[in-house]
Design a protein around this nucleic acid. Structure first.
Lengths: 95, 95
DNA sequence: CTAACATTTCGATAAATATCGAAACATTTC
DNA sequence: GAAATGTTTCGATATTTATCGAAATGTTAG
């Protein structure tokens, strides 16, 4: 079980912002259900977005702490950080 | 217990967008903990925002289904719609 | 009905940001 | 090391949107 300490207001906001864009959220969903998204290009095909834009969104998600990006050469393993995700849900629930 | 049916993607998005702005989120929090926010002007004093802007944010929150606004003359009762809120949390949890 | 108060609408502005093409940057494989 | 493949950075653009002041609208009380 992930050790999720509670998030600061800034972290909460960063995540809320990251989730606000529909495409970005779609990307996150795709990563969460890890269906073949070991690369940017996989996302590129499924979403109708240029590699540049995908790259930008992945960066945002990573900076918000929502995903992990492990690069191994030309491949990448994208994964949802459940720890952050749960902490975010917990934060919202505390409203 | 409110019978919250699950939200459409559009509703989820609308809420995510509504939560993305820090001021708006602060307003929502204030409403949720209903400390004396029976009027726009109360919010006006606590947030550093013009009435016009508060009004705008309240509209967004209402349109996203996050709050109820019951006006009674010059007073208003603002309240969090727990039903929507829970449905949103449930939607996110389903990722 | 008028004065006082509270909120919304309107119009404008400034800041944020999603998007892309092209160029630069890795990394692997031949 | 050159070609191929995949990703990021850069610069530019267009859209969105948060914000406000001022005017308009509504509501209560004298």
């Amino acid at each position: 079980m992930a050790r999720s300490r509670s998030l600061t207001d800034e972290q909460m906001q960063a995540i809320a912002r990251a989730l606000a864009d529909p495409r970005r959220f779609a990307i996150l969903q795709q990563i969460a259900s890890h269906t073949e998204c070991t690369q940017c290009s996989a996302l590129h095909e499924q979403q109708i977005l240029s590699p540049a834009t995908i790259s930008h969104h992945l960066k945002e998600l990573a900076e918000a702490g929502l995903i992990d990006v492990r690069r191994e050469g030309r491949t990448a393993a994208l994964s949802l950080r459940r720890e952050t995700w749960n902490a975010y849900l917990a934060g919202l629930a505390r409203i």
